[in-house]
Each structure stands twice: as structure tokens, then as C-alpha cells.
Design a protein around this nucleic acid. Structure first.
Lengths: 338, 338
DNA sequence: ACAACAATCCGAAACGTTTTGGATCATAAC
DNA sequence: GTTATGATCCAAAACGTTTCGGATTGTTGT
């Protein structure tokens, strides 16, 4: 592996000059620079990022900390698309991305902070972690710059990107109401998710706006899991057969709800309408296709990376980025007659 | 950030001793070791991997080179699951993974090899790259240890993991034949994919085994893309209405074929049976649910990482790992009557 | 002729580790 | 009493880069 030293020897200059030539400093003669560049190419030189990182005290690497990078999480292509978005921006600006995950079977004994510090990442993006995750506060309180996805914490070193989940939920519920639904239930995620708080808030507000009663007992938690949502929907439908529509805090749960409806011999959307949240791939392929609130997951990753790197390089205007959501009407919601 | 030097000072020993104590060498007194460990913990010490990597000349990091980490590729959860598998093993053995992708809009001007050498990855896993990708040979010919997914190249530094695609294809076609199909078409991927070569081989062998004619003009390339497969299937079905079944080299293409069949007013599986390959998430959610040859994508990633790291640490028995496939029968194939 | 200045170069230190090749000392063997 | 042995420690070099503070020229202005 050729080093700066080899180039220096071949070019008959000092390593200082080689370094400065390669890095575009102005105090090196254009002719020597050319010569050095040529030799570097000819010797097939690649700089050693470890050495550089060591002396510069930064690695041009960011960490993506995700929880739940499991076999099953493929269904929910959220993580994947965020990852793709992060990767996209990161490679545009010549950073690298290293992936950390907590779901290894033998629970990793090192904390996020330790991981970040050992690997000398310049900053981190956190995706999919619960608000009660102990690591969350550890990271936030450490001085490692980070941006959170869907958790609104802001400080000198932490920012976040999210969507307006209250508004998103409202859009969904208003849509159901416009279709003529008056008896709407909700399957939420779990307590320790910021988006859950927000979406249920939007749900209630939309009902109130329309002059409809808010029935707490028509709100159930599905833990963002398909089967649990199915079970809860089944329970609600049996207990309260008058329900005509479901608003779900995730598409995966909406799919579970659809199963529950079918299981009771009812039809979607004619007997019970269902609307989800996220717009995962499955949403448009299920039958009936799922109406949903679409989030641009790729953009969330992209913007998170952009925000983080802007913060790292000291040119971040703001530490928060709110993205738009969009109502997608498909087959699982339809005008209610009668 | 506390260093080994701080610990040395605090403990009143040399940095050598600290290093050796922390790394479990035997030539340090148990009492001093304890003291050093305590101080290290108390000072919240994390080793600097950059420095370590620099002197040891290895980074305990592997690169995952994927092509096609785009928004759209989420449909095809192949990449994601492989990634999850790689991540799983890598974190089990305390390595790290950095992601490289070629699909950045502004084509990354650096080659894979340069990326690998700059970032000082110890080895690389290549997934989803075509056999005619110029980078492929570059990587294979460089001395960077790597393992390929679904490309059978083997050398002192190169290994691969794949499945038996000939057998897999045979299983699929035999299944169709057993159901009574005699006029079977195939939608393949593209020329520059090893798996395509193999699957079409299996397709033909299965036909011959059963004494059925091989009609080259019933084999079309769908480029692993849903719309292209749909178009090709449409063309074939119009030109040869006698076709009663399709074997597709990927599930995504199979979904396209199903669309084509429906578009012609025919039904799946009654008029035309369709079987895919991969067992992506969508397969079990589409309607009808797609029969397919399942590959354990997570395991492929896991085994690739294991193989690579075994190679790196000099204890790889073999450089190749072949995984099993499994026929999954769902709604898109059914006993043919008449 | 001399000072001032710009252009171009370089030596050496620094970053935080690991490792080599001893040094020191106490104990055991002769 | 001397020597060998083992236990425990350490100084210094090395990894490949960046950068600080100057050194060496040649040119310009007076």
C-alpha cells in the first residue's frame, strides 16, 4: 500500500509538500503539484482515512443507530427507506455511514455512546428507538451531535426530523368523516412512541372539530404489530359492532385490522372502512389496497443526514425539519351510503 | 476524551502497561490490572479505534457494497434482509459494517477498491451487482478479501454464498408439471446475472426430464422489473394463448405477470398459473398469494458475513456456502383440471 | 545595496494506540 | 555467593497523516 512517504520519495519533495499538494493548498507550485498528482495516480495511492481521522480528530463517518433491524422488520420498509435516504445524502457529500443495531441476539454489551466514541463517528442518526429507551437519553446527553427521527428533542447538539403527525392523523380522520363515517375507532401504537401521542391527539381533534364524541374505549394499542392490531380490532368489533371505520397508526396494523374485519364475515370497505399510516409497500398491494397517510421515508432519511452533516460543519440554520404528509385514497375507504 | 495516557498517569504506570492490562496480557500483575481497569471505567475510557486500526493495520470493519439501494428497491426486500443478516453476524463478533452504494445520483467517482482501501475495510461483501459490472473484476482482482452473493467466483481471497438455483428452478417447474401444466413459459431476469443463467438452465432441464419440448421463444427477459415482466407476459400471452403457466425468475416479475394475466381477462391460477422466485414479503400479501421458491435472504447475509470474517481470521474451511431453497405453494398455482 | 515581501518548500511534532526488546528485582537453584 | 529464572514493568519506535513555525529563495521598491 503506497503512502504519502513513497510519493514524497518518488517526487523528491517532503511529505509536507505532498500532503499540501494533494489537499489543494495554495503554497505549492503548480508544476510540483501536477508532478505529485501524477505520481500519486501512477502509484495508485489511496489516503489512509484512519491516519487522517486520527490527527484531524474526525472521521467523516456518521452512525445510523436503528433498533429492530430484524428479519421481520422487512415488512415494514420504513427502516430500509430511511437507511436508503441517509445513504444517498451521505454519499453525495462523501461521508460514510456505519450501521449500529441493538437487536443482536446476544444483547450488545456496549452502549450507543460507547459505540459512537469507539468508532469515532462524527455524529449519529437515531431511528426507530422508543422514547423510554435508556440509550436515548444517554446519547442525547453525551456531546455527540445527533439527529433523531420522529422524536422532538432539541439542544445545541441534537436536532430532529419528523412530520406533523397531528395534522396527518387529522387528514385521515377527516377523510373518513367526509365519507360519512361517524363511529370511528382507532388502533394506536404504544405509549412510548412520540408519534402515537401525536396521532391520537390528531384523531381526537378531528372528531371534536366535526362535533363527534370521543370514546376513549374505542382507542386500543396495537404495539405497531399486525397480529396485536388484529386481535384488538376483533375485540372492538365484537364488543362494539356499531363501529364503521378504523384509523390505524400504522399500515401494518391496518392490515391486521382488515384481517379481523374479514374474519368476522364483514367486508372492507363496505361494512368497515380502514385507513392506515406510513404508506408502506404492502399498502398498495394488499386487497383491498389500503388508504393511508403517506410519509416520505426516504426523504426523512435524506433530510436527517443533511441536517446532521450541516450541524457537524457548522452551517445548520435550524435543528428541526418537518416534512409533509399526503393522504392516499385507495380501496379500503369508500363513500358510505346510508 | 480520555486516553490511555490519562489512565497511565492516574495509575502511576506506563502506557505500555495500561495497554497490556486492558488487552489481557499475562505479564501484568493482577492487582495493577484491577487498578487500571477501575480507573479506566471511572474515567469513562473508550479506546480509539482509529489509532488502533492504524497501528494494527486492520479496522475490524467490513464493507457492504450494494448496487441499487434506491427508493424503489424497497419493494424487493432482498437487499434489506441480506443487510440485516450481515449486520446480525457482524455485531455478534464485534465487527462493524459500513455501507457503500453505487446508486448515488451523481455517480460516485471513486471505485469500490478505492473506497475499500481508503476506509480501510478488512474485507467486503458484494450484493446485487451484475456480472458485467466493471467494478466486480476490479474488486476480485484486488487483494481485498471479499465474498460475493450469488456470483460463483472463488480464489484465495474471494468466496461466495448462493443457493442451488438450478435445483430451485427445477422445483418450481416440477411443481407446475405435477399440477398438470404442459405449456409453460418463463420470464427470466437479464443476461448478466448468474442466477438467471442457472434458473433458465433448471427450467429447461425440468421440461426435458418430463419429456416436454423446450420452446426458446417462450422464454423472455424481464430485467427483474415488474413492468417489463408485465409487458413481456402480455406479449407472450397474446402471441401464444395456449400458455397455461409462467415460471418467473423473481417474485416482483411474477407480480407483473399476474397483472398481465388479469389485464387479458384471464384468471390466476385457473387460466394461468404463476410461480415466482425469492419469496419477498409481497408474495404472501398479493392476491392471489404467490407460490414461489423461497430463499433465506437473511441467512445469505449472515453466512456471507460469517464466511468473510472466517476468511479474514484465517479459519475458513471452504470459501463457498450453498444454502437451501424451499418451494412455497400458495394461491397462484393450483391443480389443473383437464 | 538593502529591506520588504511573496512564493515555495520543509522539519518536526502531534494524534492514540500496539509491540519490540529489554530493564529491574526478587526468588530459586546450584 | 553466584547464576539462572520468572514476574513485572517500561522506553521508544512505529503506523500515515496534518499542521505549525520557520527556512530558503527570488523579486520588488526605494
Amino acid at each position: 500500500m503506497t503512502t504519502i512517504k513513497d510519493i514524497a520519495k518518488a517526487a523528491g519533495v517532503s511529505i509536507t509538500t505532498v500532503s499540501r499538494a494533494l489537499n489543494g493548498y495554495s503554497d505549492v507550485n503548480e508544476k510540483t503539484r501536477q508532478k505529485i498528482m501524477d505520481i500519486a495516480k501512477q502509484l495508485n495511492y489511496s489516503p489512509n482515512t484512519l491516519a487522517r481521522g486520527l490527527v484531524m480528530n474526525k472521521s467523516k463517518t456518521i452512525g445510523l443507530l436503528v433498533s429492530g433491524l430484524t428479519r421481520e422488520s422487512a415488512k415494514d420498509n420504513f427502516t430500509f427507506e430511511v437507511l436508503a435516504g441517509v445513504n444517498e445524502y451521505v454519499s453525495e457529500v462523501d461521508y460514510d455511514m456505519v450501521l449500529f443495531s441493538t437487536t443482536s441476539t446476544k444483547q450488545r454489551e456496549k452502549t450507543y455512546t460507547q459505540l459512537c466514541r469507539e468508532r469515532r463517528v462524527d455524529g449519529a442518526i437515531l431511528q426507530g428507538i422508543r422514547t423510554d429507551d435508556p440509550y436515548l437519553h444517554e446519547v442525547v446527553e453525551s456531546e455527540i451531535p445527533c439527529v433523531l427521527i420522529d422524536i422532538p428533542i432539541e439542544s445545541k447538539t441534537v436536532g430532529y426530523v419528523t412530520t406533523d403527525n397531528v395534522l396527518g392523523a387529522k387528514k385521515a380522520v377527516r377523510h373518513l368523516i367526509e365519507l360519512g363515517h361517524k363511529r370511528i375507532a382507532m388502533i394506536n401504537g404504544y405509549e412510548y412512541a412520540f408519534v402515537s401521542e401525536q396521532r391520537v391527539k390528531g384523531f381526537k381533534e378531528a372528531l371534536i372539530e366535526a362535533g363527534l364524541p370521543v370514546r376513549e374505549y374505542w382507542i386500543a394499542n396495537g404495539a405497531f404489530r399486525e397480529e396485536i392490531a388484529e386481535r384488538e380490532a376483533l375485540r372492538l368489533l365484537q364488543q362494539y359492532p356499531e363501529i364503521t371505520a378504523f384509523f390505524c397508526a400504522s399500515d401494518l396494523m391496518a392490515l391486521g385490522v382488515i384481517k379481523a374485519v374479514k374474519q368476522l364475515g364483514k367486508r372492507v370497505p363496505d361494512d368497515v372502512a380502514v385507513i392506515g399510516y406510513d404508506d408502506i409497500i404492502l399498502a398498495s398491494y394488499s386487497s383491498p389496497a389500503l388508504s393511508t397517510i403517506a410519509q416520505d421515508k426516504f426523504a426523512m432519511g435524506y433530510e436527517a443526514a443533511k441536517l446532521l452533516i450541516d450541524m457537524l460543519e457548522g452551517n445548520a440554520q435550524s435543528h428541526v425539519k418537518i416534512l409533509e404528509t399526503e393522504l392516499k385514497i385507495r380501496g379500503s375507504t369508500v363513500k358510505k351510503d346510508g
